[in-house]
Every structure is written in C-alpha cells, then in structure tokens.
Design a protein around this nucleic acid. Structure first.
Lengths: 225, 225
DNA sequence: CGACACCATTGATATTTATCAACGGTATTT
DNA sequence: AAATACCGTTGATAAATATCAATGGTGTCG
C-alpha cells in the first residue's frame, strides 16, 4: 500500500518537500561539520578519502550552546574535543570560588583535560562554551584505533603534541620573564581574536592576574606616550 | 718483526696489561653507558637486540664535568640530551643578569630546548652540568631515522611527549594555584633527590621565587606547629 | 518598561614578594 | 694555610599585586 494512497496529495507533497529540505540540511551539516577538522590535519599529513571516512566513524559531532558545559569538575574527561566553530574555555575553581582560566580553544584547536583523559581520573577542570559551538568529540579508544588504522595519524599526534608542549613552554617563559603589560601585548599580538571575543576578566585570569590589575595595566599603557 | 723482539720482555708485558685494562674499561664504559637509556625505553616499548643496535648508531655518548655547558644561549640546540648519570639544568638569564631555572634533568630524563631543536633557531637557554654527567646525545635527523626504522619508537616518542605535556601542565597549575610553601612541599614530595642535590637558590628560581623568599618560607614552615 | 545579571573601572588598603645590603659559614682554589 | 667564591640567612625597605568596596554602564529577560 503506497503512502500516496493514504494521504491527500498536497500533504504527501508537503512531506516530500520537508523531507528533502531536511536531507539537504543534514548533508550541509555533515559536510560542514568536518571541514575545519580535516583541513587542519591535511596541513600536516595527507589523508585519502577512505582514511577520512575511517576517521569519521570515530568522530561524534556535537553542538553546544553558549554557557553549556562539555566537562565538569569531578567528571572523567572522556573526549578529546575539536572545535569546528565557536570558542571553548577550560578553567578550575579555586578555594575562594574564583575561576582560574587555563586555556581557550578557538576554531581549529583541540582541548581536553589530558591528564583525566589518559588516566581516567576525575577532572579538576571545567570546560564550557563562551559562544555557540560546533564540536567533534573522539574518545581515547577511538584515537588509538585511528592511530592503529592510519599510522600517519600517529605521526600527526606526535607532532601536534610536540607543538603543544613547545607552546606551553613558551607561555611559561612569558609568564615568568615578562611584565604584566608585555604579557597582555603578546596575547594581543598572537591571539587578537581571543581578546576581542572573551570578557576581559577571563583574559586577566588567563594571564594570572586579577581583573582589577589588568584594567589598571591597560590604563597605564594608554596614558604615558 | 714481532714486537716482542724490539722491547725488553717486562715492558712488553706491561703494555699488554695496560691495553687489556683499557679494553676492559672501554667495554664497561660502553655497556654501562646505555643501561639507563634502554631500561627507560623498555619500560614502555620492547626493543630487540637488533633494534637497540640500530639505535646505538645514532647515539653519541658524552661525558660532561660539573659546571660545563652542553648548550649556551645563542647556539642552536643540535641535540636532544639523555642523562645516563648526573644532573643537568636549563636556565635563561634575564635582563638583570639573574639566572632563571627552567628545568632540571636527573638520570633517566631527557632535556633540550625543544623549540630551538625543532626550528633550528638560536636558543635562549643555557644547559649546564650541576654534577659530573654521562650523557647520550642524538640529533634531530638521528631521531627521525630511528623513528623511521623502528616504528615502535614513534609510539614511544608520542607517549613521552604526552607525558611531558601533562607534567608541564601540572607544574603550571601548581604555579598558579598553590602557595609558595605548598609548591616547595610538592617538589620535596615528588623530587626529594633534586632538592638535596641542587643549591637552594636554584630551587627557588625553579619555583619562581627569589632565594630570600624561599629561605623565609622554609623558616615559616618550621616555626609554627 | 523595569529588574537584574554581568562587567569594567576606580579608590583605599592590605599582603606578598622583590630588592638591596650585610653577615657568617663552608667549600674551593691558589 | 690563606684567599676567594659561593651560599643561605636575616633585616629594612620598596614595588607589585591582591583584596574589598563602590559605581556606572550595558545588555538580557520577564
């Protein structure tokens, strides 16, 4: 019994159109969803279409609205998170109840509590969305499987980790050698996006300062020519 | 014309004995020289004797006396350094001429200025020996070659880099969340060796403090029960 | 529209840490 | 053995930053 027989024609047509529209939307969603991801990887290694397909099996797309959490303190960090679109931030809460920003993650960046992710221990960090986000999640088994099936990706992982280490080391050296103002300027130079898209008190926390101190430092920088 | 004919017998015997002694010393030197190195690697992956032999082709043993440099500011960091024995320290010198300790490396640890090592840019760090050391050096091409010939070693490199990243992240979080005294105690807990073998002003610098501040903090810790 | 949350700024004050200087002890070098 | 370098401690003071409190602006939500 064909569907057509059970419905008035105009309803059937309406259904078809809706269906097609949704299918189109889905296609767009799925193709767009991985765009930045594979672009980033292909800057370092080259994946064939087959390999990309393998990868997609282990990737879990997720949309996250502003202010929502993707990881909360006490939970185990089950996923390594890739930001296709939007802006995440990880932070801890100290004994006085203040947020302590650890990291920001823009489009094209990865973020996780690596320690919790590797060991399975509960995380001491929170990760939430500062903007509406489109994310790709992959768990540790997934990553291992991809590294097994696509050995090139192990190479990528190594290089990525190496770069992350160097960047953190550099951030450390800036923290201990540069003045407050120099640190802010470095950030402004390197990540103008972040400074524009993130409330200033979070920038302050990222730089290891109170909001008041950063505010005063900025004032000092404009006044004396 | 045999050597024996040209020398009095007692001199010939003396030569033989010296030669044998030196050979024995050389063997001991060579076997001992790689002991910690392969022990460390085999904790993570298993290398066959053949693979160890391949590795040795690219390793350059070097002894370094206390106070000698293995890397100086302005030089390119050509080697990744493994400490078989002894204790190294990397540091930078700030504009006031003070040392700023970045890292210590005990037996079984690796040390380098990774940024300079990867990019070939001149280093901003110095690395010197705080004790007489036995080191194994390997350059970037050597590492790449070993990773190519022994794919397991790429896995090792990745895991090692991941651990280094996690450790640095942890050190960061301790730096920003813990008090001076808590930071010192953490170090005491985790690396009692370092605290005993390194002058206190270097510990202070490692913790981001002046020697005076650390001295006073220690005093505070003993007085009030 | 009004209530409310969020945020940057500013002022006054407290706390922490650095800086400068001096001293005494210990190890190293000559 | 004497001279010297190195090191940890202590005191006095200065500088940087945090803390506490208040204000005004801006945007959001009912």
């Amino acid at each position: 019994m064909p569907l057509k027989e059970q419905l008035p024609l105009f309803l059937f047509e309406s259904c078809c159109i809706t269906l097609l529209l949704n299918l189109a939307k889905l296609c767009l969603f799925l193709s767009g969803m991985y765009e930045v991801f594979f672009k980033k990887i292909n800057e370092v290694i080259h994946l064939t279409a087959d390999e990309e397909a393998i990868f997609k099996n282990y990737l879990k797309p997720k949309k996250l609205r502003k202010k929502q959490f993707i990881l909360q303190e006490g939970d185990v960090c089950k996923y390594s998170i890739f930001v296709e679109k939007g802006l995440l931030r990880s932070y801890s809460v100290n004994e006085k109840g203040n947020d302590q920003v650890v990291q920001f993650a823009l489009e094209g960046w990865w973020i996780a509590d690596l320690y919790s992710f590797i060991t399975g221990e509960p995380s001491r960090y929170n990760i939430d969305a500062l903007e509406d986000c489109e994310l790709l999640l992959i768990n540790n088994d997934g990553l291992k499987e991809v590294r097994r099936q696509i050995p090139k990706f192990l190479e990528f992982s190594f290089l990525q980790m190496q770069n992350a280490y160097i960047a953190l080391e550099r951030r450390w050296s800036h923290m201990v050698t540069l003045s407050t103002e120099e640190r802010y300027n470095k950030l402004l130079d390197k990540y103008p996006d972040i400074v524009q898209r993130v409330p200033q008190h979070m920038i302050a926390s990222y730089l290891g300062l109170t909001p008041e101190t950063l505010s005063r430092a900025k004032k000092q920088m404009t006044l004396p020519k």
